[in-house]
Design a protein around this nucleic acid. Sequence first.
DNA 1: CTGAAAGCGCTTACAG
DNA 2: CTGAAAGCGCTTACAG
Lengths: 351, 351
Amino acid sequence: MNSRTEKGTHAPPAPGSASGPVTIEMVARAAGVSQSTVSRILNGTAVVSEAKRKAIDDAIATLGFVPNPVARGLAGGRTFSVGVITQAIDSPFYGAALRGIEDELEVLGYSPLFVSGHWNVAVEARCLDVLRSRRVDGIIVLTGRLTDQALASCARSIPVVVTGRTLMAPGLASLNFDNFEGGRLATQHLIELGHRRIAFIAGDPEHPDAVERLHGYRAALEAAGIRFGREMVISGGFSEASGLDAVDRLLATGQEFSAIFAANDQMAFGAALGLQRHGLRVPDDVSLVGFDDLPASLYAHPPLTTIHQPAYELGRLAASAVLQLLAGNQPVVEMPAPLLMVRESSRQRRD
Amino acid sequence: MNSRTEKGTHAPPAPGSASGPVTIEMVARAAGVSQSTVSRILNGTAVVSEAKRKAIDDAIATLGFVPNPVARGLAGGRTFSVGVITQAIDSPFYGAALRGIEDELEVLGYSPLFVSGHWNVAVEARCLDVLRSRRVDGIIVLTGRLTDQALASCARSIPVVVTGRTLMAPGLASLNFDNFEGGRLATQHLIELGHRRIAFIAGDPEHPDAVERLHGYRAALEAAGIRFGREMVISGGFSEASGLDAVDRLLATGQEFSAIFAANDQMAFGAALGLQRHGLRVPDDVSLVGFDDLPASLYAHPPLTTIHQPAYELGRLAASAVLQLLAGNQPVVEMPAPLLMVRESSRQRRD
DNA sequence: CTGAAAGCGCTTACAG
DNA sequence: CTGAAAGCGCTTACAG
């Protein structure tokens, strides 16, 4: 199989033919230079005389040469791929972020390598191992439950970008969305509509985002002189099912309320269904506000008022940050601020 | 940086320490055998004496050796990765399929490499190039617009599994869902509920799935002795927005109808919103049936009657098929049949 | 059953 | 500015 060593026994590879991949050696030969020189042009590692450069460019074009990333990875230690630990590849929220990562990485010829952590420290740690064994050049961690320490430690040997938390460490950049402010905005919106009995469907308490949104909710209430009551906070788990269930439990307590703020859109969808099941109309009987602004929120029934989280942008920014880290720069990334999207699930309170 | 060649000038790598990755050479030395033998055990390429096997296993364990997939890829020509051309990584439908692929691949230590084709032949062709240049061992193509010929040609050099079409070729396996039957089932359900004026919101006509669903719709109509009318077929594009728009156009024609079958759930969501905007209730005024059974359909308002498409299973089956192809076997895969999920968006016709 | 050696396709000091 | 050569960490005929 080592065709390189069989001298002259096989036909020269016709341009674009299927006779095996074109190697850098063939390009060098065709251009009458050494492999080193071809490699240098490919990598912009050194200045090369105009004549040779031209000859090489021509050879590359006519042979249709594409560098083998695997060989590059072994020899140069760079694989031109960045690992992405996403918690669930089919997440409606992170989907857009993944697309953002893809788009940004593509510009520089990098490929993302997606792995799923499933919100499980052990699994995420394994993901980290897989990614490192595959020699990715950098790693993006979308939230997750890895400790700050584990992340910082990893960043000592490879650039790391983490979202969903604020963390300072060498070789590491973090991107955090202002969940507190988002929670505050959502709640304030409801207050401005005249609501005073506002229930909150909380997210997973292990999830920092969820906790911050709760704090935002509480802050808005207190700023308006409304008593914050524990009994108005219903636990949830970020899923539609948990939102549905939360409404059942809220109603079971017999408390009065004219509005609900759900810590994410998925729970809001479940809550909307729960309300409907109990004969309550949104927004006529109860106003509903979500968080995330999933693509589906626009077509929910009714279209959901929510806090827009720039997932796609987040992905682009995270990818841009690893790329900067890879280039040896300290990333400068600015997260967009939370934005309230007023749609049809919230309205003025009626008495 | 070539620590291998500096004899004795550095401390022996402490087990689990961060002193650079453990190589097969270190394992061989520790076990007192050659690299070849270690390699053979790793790959199950040959029978090895019990004594050596034990020594090697121990060395691997204490050193914490993990084979470098990059080197493996270069030397052996296998990267233990399979490329996946998904049309949009954030697609609500394909998300589950991607998860299925991940899960199935993981069992044998393979990693998926996801790229997005964006329903664009040129982009998909580029994806194919990227994947091959990255030396993936096999390729899964989730639908897309590549020609049968392009796929078959690709399959000559690397195992290919394609979904969403039926195609026979050496080194290739195809997995097709019975869209015709699904379309028939959905329509028949509406007919059984007494509906006779059933509008159809079509998908992208370039998309074979869409065409087959239309044929299923038509077949069900004709089997029930209901005239098939072109005017009841409204064009759509598989997006929520196109579903909303389709309803507007349908209503604008002034035709009577008591039910709508949308060629996918996303359009059904848009249609539901459109109906509501016009003061029409689902299912009281018009019954609505979708296709796909997205996770969101369960929490739509009202929960959507739809055809269940086993996306997760599809992913697992596709991955299993490449794995079988890789093992040199002709894959035997059985696609689950379409299943009607009756929920709350459809009901008996009222006069 | 097992080693020594060549080779995978690049990159990168090391010398001009 | 440019080559020859070694090396990346494995696998795999080729010989015992």
